[in-house]
């Protein structure tokens, strides 16, 4: 499969169809996989595809530095393709400006599959320009995609609060979660706004709560569960849980799942006069 990927990228670069390919690279075989930006046809040999290709490369599509390279091709897994849909919905990416190479994926992570891969429903990416590879892998039957949240919600509110206190106690406000998220593309994050200061910037529990609530809610109806925030968090905070909770909420109340269909209007910023409101007096 890797040869096919490299050949596809080489052809695109040689033909001048694209100026850059956003792909996975690995400096040494035991080292971590990282994104690479291939601009020369011969450099396609540096591209890798293996179980360590966690990163959601669509994050880089909105970066100024990458945009300045010209028209891009990008490797996406099924999960990453969903964030691309959101980026298109939110006018961050013009779909026709990107050549999307979908990779059939049976999951990343070794020896153990990443959590998100165990419940993956998009082994074959959709909405791409070309797909490389094939897989028979399918989502496990009758799975509950929010099992994690449901399990967590069995705890009492006090236990849940205690859990998050423990988690956010460790947050050092490095904003790696923000940096890696394909959907955190603001020019200036609200947390960096100082007139007025909406969110306390110091890494106190107070500031950490405000920040993490804000981060999660800004992804409401947008997060596609690529899981990158959780993977990169140096403090090991289970951020995915909050995202999943909101995804569950969006599906439950508004029958909406982010990144599934570019034609469905996003859940925030639209409404239905008949939306339920049993919590409002």
């Amino acid at each position: 499969m890797i040869e096919e990927i490299r050949q596809t990228c080489r052809t695109l670069l040689e033909a001048g169809t694209v100026n850059v390919v956003i792909a996975y690279g690995q400096s040494n075989p035991d080292g971590p996989v990282h994104p690479i930006f291939v601009t020369k046809p011969d450099d396609v040999e540096k591209i890798v595809w293996n179980k360590q290709c966690f990163a959601n490369l669509t994050t880089y599509l909105t970066r100024k530095e990458v945009k300045s390279l010209g028209k891009a091709a990008i490797l996406v897994k099924g999960c990453d393709a969903r964030s691309l849909v959101v980026l298109v919905q939110e006018s961050q990416v013009e779909r026709s400006d990107v050549h999307v190479i979908g990779l059939a994926c049976e999951g990343v992570g070794e020896p153990e599959l990443a959590g998100k891969c165990r419940v993956c429903e998009v082994h074959m990416p959709v909405g791409v320009d070309v797909t490389i590879g094939s897989t028979e892998a399918a989502a496990p039957e009758g799975q509950n995609r929010y099992a994690l949240v449901d399990e967590f919600m069995k705890k009492s509110p006090e236990e849940r609060m205690a859990f998050w206190k423990q988690e956010f106690e460790r947050c050092v406000r490095c904003y790696a979660c923000r940096g890696v998220c394909p959907l955190c593309y603001c020019n200036q994050c609200i947390v960096d706004k100082n007139r007025p200061v909406v969110i306390d910037t110091s890494a106190t529990l107070k500031g950490n709560f405000a920040w993490n609530i804000t981060r999660a809610f800004h992804l409401a109806g947008r997060c596609v569960s690529c899981g990158e925030c959780t993977r990169v968090c140096p403090a090991g905070i289970d951020l995915r849980m909050l995202n999943a909770s909101l995804a569950q909420s969006a599906e439950k109340h508004f029958n909406y799942r982010a990144g599934m269909d570019p034609e469905t209007p996003p859940v925030i910023g639209t409404y239905n006069a008949e939306d339920k409101e049993n919590f409002i007096r």
Binding site: V149, F152, M153, K155, S156, P157, E158, E159, R160, M161, A162, F163, W164, I213, A216, F217, A220, G221, M241, L242, S245, L246, Q248, S249, A250, H253, F254, V267, I268, G269, T270, Y271, N272, A273, D275, K276, E277, F279, I280, R281
Partner: peptide
């Protein structure tokens, strides 16, 4: 209507965080 959608989602987030929903009340 826009507000109602946001509150619906936000309440669920707060609930997951264990924030006491008895502390927030919405009314028309």
């Amino acid at each position: 209507y826009h507000a109602r959608r946001r509150w619906t989602l936000f309440r669920d987030l707060l609930e997951t965080m264990g924030i006491d929903l008895n502390r927030i009340h919405f009314a028309w």
